[in-house]
Design a binder for these strands. Structure first.
Length: 510
RNA sequence: GGUCCGUUCGUCUAGUCCGGUCAGGACGCCAGGUUUUCAUCCUGGUAACACGGGUUCGAAUCCCGUACGGACUACCA
């Protein structure tokens, strides 16, 4: 069985930072291609010059690099089908626009934007919707209603014009979507879309079809917002006499509360990022947070995104990129939109964090410590993260869980004091201090052994002693195994903290 | 308004094509256990087929309708 080459593309507009919905679309394209041994192309669709944002393209490229989504061809890689930036392909679109004009599938329209606006308002006043279609095109200012001479004369005078698609009448367009199945639309509800703008640039529709054809794209996997334009696109392929690629329209990512498309606002309000990387808007100066900057691991981010709308049909939830490419299949993509859940995203990060080596985690934690003014030894930090990594979701939470390894507690949690600093605590801690000062081999196992023996001998309650001890060492009733803590901070610091605790907490009478 | 798409626990979802298990898993939440504390971990629990008809011995699954939600409806993508 001969199969055509699998080639897919992700084609963002450089109008700002990439939304996580866009990252997911790119991810599914990537996984689809890699699963089938195909190629993945990055194309930049910058045909709207008014919306161009400096830095957006670089942002997009950086985001994918961080995520581990790699392109085979495209704007940074080059390739045999370039250029991959649409603004550099202007003459190509011009040429194909003319082809459509010549074949009668398109026509020149000289209506000014103002004239069309007025018409829209008029229609609206009568509670109707203005559509530039077969019904009205005969009465408007376009080449369909003029002689050849009139048209050439207008063109010669540089009259602004657009090229519109002549939408056929009374046709049922039957389309197939890999996710939704067969979809039918009557062309009478469609309009004569602009294909080529008066500024000399094509619209998305023309550029997209031309490029997908020329770049030999086999599958178009894009967001659901494009489903309404699918009939136009199918008709365009037909008008050119080209074989259309296969289409798959992905469901949207929804906001966590209520309904609607996930937006930056939701992220700000609910406290999670909607962009992969932090973004500094060059115009407004506004800064948006990003997953990378919020401490997500790229593996966790990708894993979380992959499972939002797709599932393997098994109970596996943790996937490396490699495992994802092996398991991915477009027909296991769901039809309905997914609400993004920040809590589950954090859980994914936790899963990846606990899998990481102490060496790697220490490498991430040390800069944070340095920022706080602590210059701890690498080995010490490695031991610390090893003890606390089970209890955090993010590297940024390490400090809260481990500050007592680096600083002697200044204060003692009043509630804990009330609960655990009893009448005989002072006496017991004094004796413990004496006992510990005599221990020569200060390691966790040995300390546990001698302390338990001492407890036994003195007939002191384990709970009472250990809690008071923890209160003195940590400042509150939290943290890892206490003997691990004191072994790490060392004998001198342990005795020092006992001394200090005894002094601060004093004897309690009750 | 019109067109198209969608609808299973609070959330992500399995199951739907090829009707027939107490509708399964995960996150969250709750309870219990383990632990010197907290967390981890273990055990258990909570909780859903949008609604109404129809077809059928039997419907989450097939058909029709309704409701609700979403996308689109620019010389933006």
């Amino acid at each position: 069985m001969s199969q055509k080459n699998i080639r897919v593309r992700f084609a963002p507009s450089p109008t700002g930072p990439l939304h996580i919905g866009g990252v997911r679309t790119a991810l599914y394209n990537y996984l689809f291609a890699k699963h089938l041994g195909g190629k993945f192309i990055l194309r930049i669709e910058d045909t709207d010059q008014t919306r161009f944002v400096p830095g957006a393209q670089e942002y997009i490229v950086d985001s994918f690099r961080w995520c581990g989504i790699e392109f085979d061809e495209g704007v940074t890689k080059g390739g045999p089908f370039g250029p991959y930036i649409q603004s550099e392909r202007q003459e190509i679109y011009q040429q194909y626009s003319e082809q459509l004009l010549n074949s009668g599938h398109a026509y020149y329209a000289f209506d000014t934007p103002e004239a069309l606006d007025d018409l829209r308002k008029e229609f609206e006043a009568e509670k109707k919707t203005f559509t530039y279609n077969a019904e009205v095109r005969g009465k408007l200012h376009n080449s369909l209603n003029m002689s050849k001479e009139e048209v050439t004369s207008l063109l010669k005078k540089d009259t602004p014009y657009v090229v519109r698609f002549a939408m056929p009448e009374d046709r049922i367009v039957v389309m197939n979507d890999l996710i939704r199945g067969q979809v039918e639309v009557n062309t009478n509800v469609l309009d004569d879309k602009v294909l080529f703008k008066s500024d000399g640039m094509p619209t998305y529709h023309l550029a997209n079809i031309v490029d997908d054809h020329l770049m030999e794209i086999s599958h178009v996997i894009r967001g659901e917002e494009w489903l309404p334009s699918l009939p136009l696109h199918v008709l365009l392929y037909e008008a050119f006499g080209w074989e259309a690629p296969e289409f798959a329209h992905l469901p949207l990512l929804l906001k966590p509360e209520g309904n609607g498309k996930l937006s930056k606002r939701d992220g700000d309000r609910l406290g999670f990022p909607v962009f992969p990387l932090a973004w500094n808007d060059p115009k407004s100066g506004e800064v948006s947070r990003g997953y990378r900057d919020d401490g997500y691991f790229p593996e966790a981010f990708i894993n979380m995104l992959a499972l939002l709308g797709w599932n393997p049909g098994t109970e596996q939830e943790l996937f490396s990129m490699q495992e994802l490419t092996e398991a991915f299949s477009i027909d296991r993509v769901g039809k309905s939109g997914s609400k993004f859940d920040p809590a589950k995203a954090a859980w994914f990060n936790h899963q990846y964090l606990i899998q990481k080596s102490n060496v790697e985690l220490a490498g991430l934690f040390i800069p944070i410590l340095q920022q706080k003014g602590f210059l701890a030894e690498t080995e010490f930090v490695e031991n610390v993260v090893g003890l606390v990594k089970e209890r955090v979701n993010f590297v940024s939470e390490f400090w809260d869980q481990s500050n007592f390894f680096f600083i002697t507690p200044e204060t003692f949690d009043p509630l804990a004091v009330k609960k655990r600093w009893k009448a005989d605590s002072y006496q017991q801690m004094s004796e413990l201090k004496t006992m510990l000062s005599g221990v020569s081999d200060f390691n966790a196992a040995r300390l546990e052994e001698v302390t338990k023996a001492w407890l036994e001998e003195k007939q002191y309650g384990m709970g009472a002693v250990m809690n008071a001890f923890r209160l003195i060492i940590v400042g509150e009733l939290k943290g890892p195994h206490l003997f691990d803590i004191i072994a790490l901070i060392g004998q001198e610091e342990t005795l020092n903290r006992l001394e200090r605790g005894l002094h601060e907490l004093g004897e309690k009478k009750d």
